[in-house]
């Protein structure tokens, strides 16, 4: 990690973000962490960011840890994010999932 963060390029930031998320999911165990990271990238990263991280995984694999590499691969297969059962809201009739408040 370069000492001077403010010159971090976009790709540096994406690599850093992916690993930071992975570090904070590590306590779930590798399998769960990979699945959670893949779902996180799918739900919150915009197409350009997804494309850039997939490119890095192909061109510069050494920059990504095993968990990150696996997660990016799963996200890349484009499996649709797990369907959120809309009906579930109506029964309890309150707000659904969200990531930010």
């Amino acid at each position: 990690m370069s000492d001077d963060t403010h010159v971090m390029s976009t790709t540096d930031r994406l690599v850093y973000m992916a690993h930071q998320i992975a570090r904070n999911m590590a306590m779930m165990g590798e399998a769960k962490a990979t699945e959670a990271l893949a779902e996180h990238l799918t739900r919150f990263w915009d197409p350009r960011m997804k494309a850039q991280i997939i490119a890095i995984a192909q061109d510069q694999p050494e920059r990504l840890s095993p968990v990150v590499t696996a997660a990016v691969a799963r996200m890349a297969q484009g499996r649709p994010a797990p369907q959120v059962d809309a009906a579930q809201f109506n029964r309890v009739d309150e707000a659904g999932h969200c990531d930010a408040g």
Partner: peptide, 25 residues
């Protein structure tokens, strides 16, 4: 700020915190 979030100001969700990928919504 609560209202801004409720109204779907985040890039990944519509108002009421429903993800943009959720087809029904």
């Amino acid at each position: 700020v609560q209202g801004a979030c409720d109204m779907g100001s985040f890039p990944h969700e519509f108002s009421g915190y429903r993800h943009v990928s959720d087809d029904a919504t």
